[in-house]
Simulated scan of single mutants.
Amino acid sequence: MRYAFKIGDELVKVAPRSLADELVLNIGDKDCRVVFEHGKEGRCTLSLDGKNYESWVARDGDDIYIKMSGRYFKVTAFDPRAAAAGASVAAGAISAPMPGVVVEVLVAEGDEVVEGAKLLTIESMKLQSTVRAACDGVVGRIHVSAGSEFNKDDVLVEIESND
């Protein structure tokens, strides 16, 4: 079975190759041996193909935040079936994945956008991420502005689909 994760703005496909004696994951197109040891207060050791990384991990709902080698990563498990189901409930409504603050609004109402276009930059837990269009369409309504705070699941932007 294949899984998909968003790491920053990149979608990465992961598939387990071996779960017996050691964990081997196919990440992108490369097989990696993975060892993950939890410590106290979010501290952990991650070993990829024998190279050890001191890291810290925090979780917020479906999102996992990782600090490793002086860099910060947001990892989100992505289930296309769940996304499709959610899209049918509120077609074109893009909701906040976590609480945070708007750093920058990158579009205006009436702008035409394509699927994957950058709409907003948001910040949560001192990490910035990009909110992207889920479909081709026209920006119908923007519910936030730069500096405004929002809660998880608040509607940030509505896209009127071209379908």
Rank of each mutant, 00 (worst) to 15 (best):
Ala58Pro: 03
Gly39Cys: 00
Leu120Pro: 01
Thr130Trp: 10
Val105Lys: 04
Lys40Leu: 00
His38Ser: 01
Glu54Phe: 12
Leu46Ser: 02
Asp79Gly: 03
Gln128Trp: 03
Thr45Cys: 07
Ala77Lys: 13
Lys74Asn: 12
Ala87Asn: 15
Ser69Phe: 10
Ile66Tyr: 07
Asp49Lys: 04
Met125Leu: 04
Ser88Arg: 14
Cys32Pro: 00
Val75Gly: 06
Cys44Lys: 01
Ile64Ser: 11
Ala91Met: 14
Lys126Asn: 14
Asp111Gly: 11
Ala85Thr: 00
Ala77Tyr: 15
Arg33Val: 10
Ala134Met: 09
Ala96Glu: 09
Phe73Gly: 12
Pro80Glu: 04
Lys30Tyr: 06
Glu109Tyr: 09
Met68Ala: 15
Ile64Pro: 09
Leu25Phe: 02
Val101Asn: 10
Tyr72Gly: 14
Arg33Gly: 01
Val105Ala: 02
Arg132Glu: 04
Pro97Met: 10
Ile122Asn: 08
Glu104Thr: 01
Ala96Pro: 02
Ile122Ser: 13
Val103Ala: 10
Leu120Asp: 02
Val101Lys: 15
Val57Ala: 08
Glu41Tyr: 07
Gly61Ser: 13
Met98Trp: 04
Val113Arg: 10
Asp60Glu: 15
Gly116Thr: 05
Gly42Trp: 06
Ala96Ile: 05
Glu41Ala: 12
Asp62Cys: 08
Glu115His: 09
Val113Cys: 09
Phe36Ser: 05
Lys126Gln: 14
Ala87Cys: 03
Ala133Glu: 09
Ala87Leu: 13
Ser95Asn: 12
Ser69Val: 00
Leu48Pro: 10
Gly70Pro: 06
Arg81Ser: 12
Arg81Val: 07
Lys67Gly: 03
Gly70Arg: 08
Tyr65Ile: 01
Val102Glu: 12
Gly50Gln: 09
Val35Gln: 07
Ala91Arg: 15
Asp31Cys: 00
Gln128Met: 07
Val89Thr: 05
Ile122Ala: 10
Trp56Ser: 14
Lys67Met: 04
Met98Tyr: 10
Pro99Lys: 14
Val114Tyr: 13
Val35Asn: 09
Thr121Arg: 14
Ile64Phe: 13
Val131Lys: 08
Val89Tyr: 02
Lys118Pro: 06
Val103Phe: 08
Asn26Tyr: 07
Gln128Arg: 13
Ser129Gln: 12
Glu115Lys: 15
Leu120Phe: 06
Phe36Ala: 04
Cys44Ile: 01
Gly110Pro: 02
Val113Asn: 13
Leu106Ile: 00
Gly92Phe: 12
Lys67Ile: 01
Trp56Arg: 11
Leu119Glu: 00
Lys67Asn: 11
Gly116Arg: 05
Ala108Arg: 15
Ala83Thr: 06
Ala117Pro: 02
Ala77Phe: 15
Ile27Pro: 11
Tyr65Gln: 08
Gly61Phe: 08
Ser129Phe: 09
Asp111Arg: 11
Glu41Met: 09
Gly110Cys: 05
Thr121Val: 15
Ala87Glu: 13
Pro80Thr: 02
Ile66Asp: 08
Ile64Gly: 09
Ile66Ala: 10
Asp111Tyr: 06
Ala77Ser: 13
Leu46Gln: 08
Arg59Asp: 03
Gly39Met: 00
Val57Thr: 11
